[in-house]
Amino acid sequence: MTTDQAEQGAFVRAPLGVQERITADGSSPWPVEAGRYRLVVARACPWANRTVIVRRLLGLEDAFSLGIAGPLHDERSWRFHNDPGDKDPVLGIEYLGEAYRAADPDYSAGVTVPAMVEIASGKVVSNDYANMTLDFSTQWTAFHRDGAPDLYPEALRAEIDEINEGVFHDVNNGVYKCGFATSQEAYDKAYTALFRRLDLLADRLATRRYLMGDTITEADVRLWVTLARFDAVYHGHFKCNRSKLSEMPVLWAYARDLFQTPGFGDTIDFAQIKQHYYGVHHQVNPSGVVPLGPDLRNWLDPHDREQLGGRPFGDGTPPGPVREGERVPPLS
């Protein structure tokens, strides 16, 4: 995540510095190859959370390993401060920035997660979060598990892309536009767009279980990672406070439905999410104090979305248990 500021106090997300892609068709320098890469994420980051969910739903755990940076970082980048010796056990680095500089000693753009790193060279291959999960669905098919769902069905791609575009600008990035705005005009514009989009999404989801109908797709993954963080951080920390998610009945039930679906809630660590946002964004929260609330056990309340029918994984099956070393603390 990056925090460039534009004119008139509006937040503009900085461009990515390593936009290569890993492909199966020879269209990039980086081929799909099991065991060659390590996906580096942070539990706190919604963009990284998308990749963790899709990797798990598709069963790609054996195709590429998972490195998890801690929730705190400084000007030197994301740090593996939750790992033994403060180093990633596979890459042997303390800061993710080391892998970026291995790829380019003069690298000066943002050090972001998610990042795919070539294990042998220690070089970042890609931080292209916009396409990474799509490539998991379309380029890594040889390594999908039996029963993997089709998260990006060809017949629906144009509609999924259209929904994702609006969700990105107004919701995924919209909460940041609210939180990092430095003028009232920029904040008001972002706030209005955010809740207008959420109202439209609620209308869409009032009569269908998922954004595309009966089954989970890439569109649901992208929306859900922002909804999952809404009450814990965006409502207060980023001033997205027209209403809490838990006060928006359709979206709240939809979000709980997915939270209770294997592959979603079992990727969420609310403690790390709060530690990151409140502990790192000093321009928003100078004290660094992390709030104790809200009580998040209501994520386990019944959602009753089954009444809309649908099959979460379509013709596929749920993913298996979370791998050892990748589990998150359960809600208590």
Rank of each mutant, 00 (worst) to 15 (best):
A158V: 01
Y100G: 12
R145Y: 09
L308S: 13
Q5D: 15
F143K: 06
G279N: 02
R79C: 03
W140N: 15
A228S: 08
R55H: 12
A34M: 13
D106S: 10
L16R: 15
V90I: 12
F11Q: 01
S243F: 00
V117F: 00
E61W: 02
Q8P: 06
T261I: 02
P114A: 08
I119P: 03
W224A: 03
L331Y: 06
D220Y: 04
A63K: 11
W140Y: 14
R197C: 04
V280Y: 12
P31M: 05
E326K: 07
R76D: 07
L308D: 14
V111Y: 06
R208W: 00
G147H: 11
E118S: 05
D104Q: 08
A142S: 06
P262M: 10
R323G: 12
A24C: 14
T226F: 01
P329R: 02
D25L: 04
E159S: 03
T133D: 14
V111G: 03
I22H: 11
R101W: 10
Q8R: 09
P318N: 00
R79P: 04
V250M: 13
L134R: 06
L151S: 15
Y191R: 06
R50W: 01
S65P: 05
L16H: 15
L156D: 14
N172E: 07
H276W: 08
K244R: 13
K177V: 06
C240G: 11
V32F: 03
Q275Y: 02
A155M: 00
H81V: 07
K274H: 04
R50L: 00
P302W: 07
G147C: 11
D203K: 07
G288H: 10
N298C: 15
K189R: 14
G309V: 05
L227V: 04
V284Q: 09
L66S: 07
P329S: 06
L292I: 01
I273C: 15
S27F: 11
V290Y: 10
A206M: 09
R55V: 09
L308A: 14
G97I: 08
K177C: 11
G265F: 06
V124N: 05
R323M: 07
E165C: 02
V284Y: 05
T267P: 14
Q307L: 11
Y107S: 02
Q275S: 03
H281M: 00
E33N: 15
W299H: 11
D266Y: 09
P291R: 01
R56F: 10
Q283D: 13
K177P: 07
I273R: 15
V124G: 02
D135P: 04
R311W: 00
N49K: 13
E185T: 07
G179Q: 03
T141Q: 06
G309F: 08
M116K: 05
M248V: 12
G26P: 13
P302T: 04
A202Q: 05
R323L: 07
I160L: 15
P330T: 03
Q275A: 04
